[in-house]
Design a binder for these strands. Structure first.
Lengths: 359, 359
DNA sequence: TTGTATGCGTTATCAT
DNA sequence: ATGATAACGCATACAA
């Protein structure tokens, strides 16, 4: 059996009994091929381990894919807005899809679909790619940009995030400056890098201020409000409950509010609360939430522009960008110990309109 | 100038100096045509008013288009979720785009783009189609479903809405039943049909109860929170300010909250508030907002299923569907002049349509 | 028939 | 030169 130096399109074409262009069409997902023929050729391509000689520049479909891992309310909406903004002028359509949290890992049928349909590029939000998926994408030369990736950003893959560590630090420092020393934190899933970074920022701020962190002050949530509620309850049951809580996501902060409310504690007089994200709804919360703004819309817009550059075959200046986070001071933080009746009974004392009323 | 019985592909082909198949490819958005050629042929097709002889069964692209008129936060997010849900199993991609409010009317370049790219169908949210656009779509046989259309739903075009009139009625009746007689309303843009319907529901409920509506009690907003704030301020400045306000959109209700807050008035002790939509965030508001639930997610899902039916060439049972609205009783409504606070809503009690409002 | 759609090869062209 | 793609037409299949 002769050693083939390298399988070329012509080899495949001869063996499949078709012309060279036909094989090319199969390779490029062109429509001009009968399903039968296509399958036959595809099989041969696999059999011969065919690889393109040159950096493939596939035909544009004019579509990019935006894939969310779970379509969660406000958060996704802001990302979508950013993507829209960035594609407004370019002539590309945005195909939005959501994969269920679990589906993300396994076979990634979603990726197969996208690749079969043909897409110029992929924006993946709050997720990550398996090595297998990466090589699939690399094979067809489909560029990817990750928005707020879960894991350690691979230097190979472009990604956009926020300065989570600095944000966590800023939130905590703000509380320290107000005079708090019993500051608890409710983090997100530890698998999420952004979550870890915020937590580390919290730790660093406390250490730098010479404060120690009791282990029970570091709670683990899942970014959703229920976990904020649950962990706050646990915190309030401690012998020395905190005077301030840093929730690593606004959604969780809403749960914190609720729990404090249930216990008849006022924000910020009894407990100060800081969130993270700056979702629109936190402005309407009572009291308006002090939080760390994460420029989701802009992050998405930047990621999209990066992707469009890659699609156009241009080089990126940097494969990793982190946009800055900012502390937004509203009304949920105040110096500790303004007044502290821990457990008022059902009797209600509505004093100032500024204070939410414990029941 | 000779009268041609009917322009055929062959006519066009001859005139354009290409073969018949090439024209066919242009018609079907196939890729095998040079941009120059394509444009030349397209121009001729328009010039000759070319029409397919046969009921065109275009090749599926596996894509549908979801077009928002302005991408507004939570609202769009819920719609998107519904669409995702409905397409999850079907093998179709959802191309999401947003047109700026003004762009919607004029030439609709966005529609050209979509048609050029090729789409199996169109979901249009909170908007309407010009007659011109309708005929364009009809020409290529692209089905459309409108979600919550702005104007009078054309019987020809499939659309999904909510029972806005009933919702407006229910909200108002609820307030009447609580004992309110000075009930104001803040409506949306009068051009929006859904807005008018809610307002009419409000009027009917009051009339039915034998109450008269002072003209100053009917305010016009734009569905955004700022307008809710502004109109509430105006209402409070009246000689006889209302004891209850029905805001025709949750966003506006948040503005109402804010204005009442600014004036040192409590919800619901001093003024009751009812919203419309039931956005997720209203559960976190303090107090949780009594509102009319509009099943946005389900409306979108239903609309999508209708569209997929049309794409599949099936007939619809009905071209117009209205999903039901439900009053969700939370804690922002109480009898007028009530001294007692509402029952504490512990944890998830917020969702219950129970009765926090004692008589 | 006549009109239209599809699969695939031919030819020219582009990139290395 | 050589591998690969792009544009177009031919032949044919299918529809009314």
């Amino acid at each position: 059996m002769a050693e083939r130096a390298r399988a070329t399109i012509a080899t495949i074409a001869r063996e499949a009994g078709v012309s060279v262009p036909t094989v090319s069409k199969v390779l490029n997902n062109r429509g001009d091929v009968a399903p039968q023929t296509r399958r036959r050729v595809e099989d041969l391509l696999v059999k011969h381990r065919y690889r393109r000689r040159t950096a493939t520049r596939t035909t544009r479909t004019g579509l990019i894919d935006l894939v969310f891992v779970d379509l969660h309310g406000q958060w996704s909406a802001e990302v979508l807005r950013g993507v829209e903004e960035a594609t407004q002028r370019a002539d590309v359509g945005v195909v939005v899809s959501a994969v269920k949290g679990q589906e993300a890992r396994p076979h990634g049928h979603w990726l197969r679909r996208i690749m079969a349909r043909g897409s110029d590029g992929l924006l993946l939000v709050l997720s990550d790619l398996s090595p297998d998926q990466r090589s699939q994408l690399a094979d067809v030369g489909m560029p990817v940009v990750l928005v707020d990736p879960v894991g350690v950003p691979d230097a190979e893959i472009a990604s956009v995030g926020a300065t989570n560590w600095r944000g966590g630090m800023a939130a905590t420092q703000h509380l320290i400056e107000l005079g708090h020393s019993r500051i608890a934190v409710i983090g997100g899933p530890p698998a999420y890098l952004c979550s870890r970074a915020r937590l580390d920022g919290y730790r660093s701020a406390l250490e730098r201020a010479g404060l120690t962190v009791p282990a029970e002050y570091v709670r683990q949530g899942d970014f959703l409000s229920a976990s904020g509620h649950r962990e706050t309850m646990a915190l309030l049951d401690l012998d020395e409950p905190p005077t301030a809580i840093f929730a690593c996501a606004d959604q969780m902060a809403m749960g914190v509010y609720e729990a404090l409310f249930d216990r008849g504690l006022r924000v910020p007089q009894d407990v100060s609360v800081v969130g993270f994200d700056d979702l629109a709804q936190t402005r309407w919360a009572v009291p308006p939430l002090t939080t760390v703004r994460q420029p989701l819309t802009e992050m998405a817009a930047v990621a999209t522009r990066m992707l469009l550059q890659l699609v156009a075959g241009e080089e990126l200046d940097s494969t990793r960008l982190e946009l800055t986070t900012d502390l937004v001071r509203r009304s949920s933080t105040a110096p500790p110990g303004a007044a502290a009746p821990p457990e008022p009974a059902a009797g209600e004392a509505a004093e100032e309109p500024g204070a939410p009323v414990g029941a």
